[in-house]
Each structure stands twice: as C-alpha cells, then as structure tokens.
C-alpha cells in the first residue's frame, strides 16, 4: 500500500469522523438569526438530549406538528418565536440531509 496516501486517507477519515460526531448531537449555528439557535438549545434540551431532535429528518409540515406537540407538552417557546423554531428545525434537519452518525457505548462485560 502507498503509505503517504494511506496517511492522508486516515487523516481525512478521522477528521470526517470527528466532524460527524462533533456535529451529530449538536445544533448548528443559524447565521441569519443567531439568537434562534440559543433559544432552540435552551427550550429543546430541557427534557431530552439534543440527539432526540437532531436525528430527525423531517418536512416543514412534520416539524410544525412536532414543535406544537412539544409546546403542548411543556416546552417553553415564546409564541413570537414559534415560526422561527420551525424554520430553523426544518432547514437544518430536512429529509435531504444525510443521517447522523450515532456513537456506541463503551465496552462492558
């Protein structure tokens, strides 16, 4: 095997593995509306981990139902922010985005 290319490939794979993992359970920034990410993080990780949200790949209609269901269940969302929540979620977690990578638990007997 050609060593330098193996090293580059390993480095590349490592970086993309890190990117996938670092990204997988985190909410991405929202350049057009920087505060909305902070609001989503605060509101949508109050009961469960971000993973429950960021693993979804849903249409805007489906995100609308989810956000309304979570508000009914007690999520704190200022009514003025509801539409921005739905926009943020449906842009970042839309059906065309690749599925996230899921980590594994440590080894244990």
């Amino acid at each position: 095997m050609f060593k330098p290319s193996f090293f580059i490939t390993t480095l590349f794979l490592s970086l993309s593995w890190i990117a996938a993992h670092a990204q997988s359970f985190d909410f991405p920034d929202a350049p057009k509306n920087p505060q909305i990410k902070e609001k989503v993080v605060k509101s949508c990780t109050a009961c469960h981990q971000s993973a429950v949200v960021v693993q979804q790949r849903l249409s805007k209609a489906a995100w609308t139902k989810e956000v309304d269901k979570m508000i009914k269940w007690g999520a704190q969302v200022d009514p003025a922010d509801r539409d921005a929540f739905i926009d943020y979620l449906s842009v970042n977690f839309s059906p065309d985005k690749p599925a996230p990578e899921f980590p594994r638990t440590d080894a244990s007997q």
Partner: peptide, 30 residues
C-alpha cells in the same frame, strides 16, 4: 490528531459509559 488541537481531543473524550451495556448504539442518552 487530538494532541494537536484541543477541540479534537474533546471529541475523543465524548464517550458513553452506560453501566452493564457493551458497545450498544446510542440513539439517545436522555
């Protein structure tokens, strides 16, 4: 690689130690 960059080493430390569970896929930890 992590030795070179603090952010990368954070990614390495982000492990899931769930008592009595071995190499299971974490769909959600909470």
């Amino acid at each position: 690689v992590g030795a070179m960059h603090p952010l990368l080493s954070w990614a390495v430390d982000n492990s899931y130690n769930i008592s009595g569970k071995d190499r299971m896929v974490v769909r959600s930890s909470q």
